[in-house]
Nucleic acid binder design. Sequence first.
DNA 1: CTGTTAGCGCCTTCAG
DNA 2: CTGAAGGCGCTAACAG
Lengths: 333, 333
Amino acid sequence: MQPRLKEIAKALGVSTATVSNVLSGKGRVSDETRKLVSEKIREVGYRPGGPGRALRTGRSGVLGLVLPDISNPLFPALAQAIETAAERSGQGILIADSHADPGAQAEALQRMIQRGADGIIIVPCRGTQVSDLPLPAVVIDSASTPGNCVCSDHQRGGQQAVEHLLDLGHRKFALLGQSRRSSVQSDRIAGMQAALAAGAHAETFWLEDGTPDFAELARRGTTAIIATSDLHALTALTRLQDAGLSVPGDVSVIGFDDLSFSARITPGLTTLAQNMPEIAAKAVAHLSLQLESAPLPMARLVPMELVVRGSTGPAPDFPPRKKPSPQQGDVTT
Amino acid sequence: MQPRLKEIAKALGVSTATVSNVLSGKGRVSDETRKLVSEKIREVGYRPGGPGRALRTGRSGVLGLVLPDISNPLFPALAQAIETAAERSGQGILIADSHADPGAQAEALQRMIQRGADGIIIVPCRGTQVSDLPLPAVVIDSASTPGNCVCSDHQRGGQQAVEHLLDLGHRKFALLGQSRRSSVQSDRIAGMQAALAAGAHAETFWLEDGTPDFAELARRGTTAIIATSDLHALTALTRLQDAGLSVPGDVSVIGFDDLSFSARITPGLTTLAQNMPEIAAKAVAHLSLQLESAPLPMARLVPMELVVRGSTGPAPDFPPRKKPSPQQGDVTT
DNA sequence: CTGTTAGCGCCTTCAG
DNA sequence: CTGAAGGCGCTAACAG
């Protein structure tokens, strides 16, 4: 049995309130009894239990995290960042998967409320609007999603990707998305299109319509592929390599999100990373403010960071600036 | 404000006990009042609040999940499976990351207890032994980990990988692990070594000692690489492709865990998948039994499943059985 | 400055 | 068959 407040109090012959006061440091307690009590607390390893405290204070110290798909490979970084940020402020994370289903999402939210979550961080499923929650909530999604929102600046990220490649002399792009209905992907592609300089050309492909023939694209003059996810960039990269083309010698490839594998493949995948710790910290902080009904800071965009690895290089016919050559990584031969 | 039991009772002129009885279906209530009460409950969307119930019953309906590293790419599948299994039995999941640190892990466990978790599912960090928890616990790790345990049959998985490649005529293997101290990886490699037939030869590499030169290995006659994780298999595969070698034409590659990218690269990665739904279901069921202090079923091994994709094929000099040739995926040329 | 008291929301005896 | 009462563990407001 876990030790209880009452037992500590009884063992020391003081009242439970005194022990509680020592714990919280609030009520006035004489130094003597304080020392005595803290000693006992440490001795028996007492920790105030959540449920009792939650009942009394209306605060559980737990935040709900609702995601559309835990198995999405981007999730680990986000969940880890949020867990870390929450832990830092002494809060736990109750997790739920809405399976990209609005009904299940609503149900998950209800359960979070029922379980006493103090606030909710939600990555909503497509086409869903979170509203009328009796709880503070933060939405993490694209900037075009209504509601309180913290997210990466996906559009600017798209621009950064294009600018990087323009600098390397690329003029003919293939833009690669999965689904038009994803506002994150749409934002990224919109940013890319906005950044296209005069003379540059880009064709957009959606994988939901089928996978383009990357080798054929290269043959027709495309020298750079920008995918809205590292997952799709990886698909393109391995298909090109399998067809005997060189990356980045023949075609440069760039992705998004810096997934776990991106640094470990050959060549390393150039990508736009989300600053998850920052997003998580902002989300948790935003929630904390709402909990204290403080004035709400507006939605914040977090910049994405360009991570340059080996998969992007100068366009094939572009005069190199610094590097002597695309430097194909041949070994010992 | 959420509706409370008391308010429902008052609104209907009955006592709180009656409402509670209707909710639980336990105490005897007349059909008439029962219908009246259930109606009202549905009308106002009442759900019994967690904290009050937890305090009274000693059950929170929440399970703790403690992981050594949420950002591990294997985690999403596991977390999702556990969340789904727990949800099915009406339980929530409180998540924590021990950051592979025994101290943090102990602290995380304490917090789960404090927050009122009914039980704990833990993937312990290396060299850690979970003990003396005042709570039911299930350990998910390799079979060589002491304590209650549900896990994949990693050793048998290693055998399956080798057998698959032996069938294809391979005789010279490279075995690839990350760290000797990981018991999951050690089990897998042990299984591989046990399955080696007479005449077959294998060399083992640990990435913690440095990355081997895969192209050089191929040149020296290795025709099959078995990695203990798809992540490392991917590293090998892209390095080989980058060096102009064909997979599986020159070298076959096989991995473990069927990570998100494994099906989406070219060639698709042959791998041994863990049956996460099964593991999760067993873990949750095991916990539920412990909660009812029922007789404990012993630790269970869950078989791994061989998923054959394009990265494995007949050994180069092996007489093909069905396929006419390794079939290099050249396009339209 | 300290200790007693009341009650957070719920469920479970026990009387009515 | 239903209602009243007590208490789970804790803390905030009060009395001593």
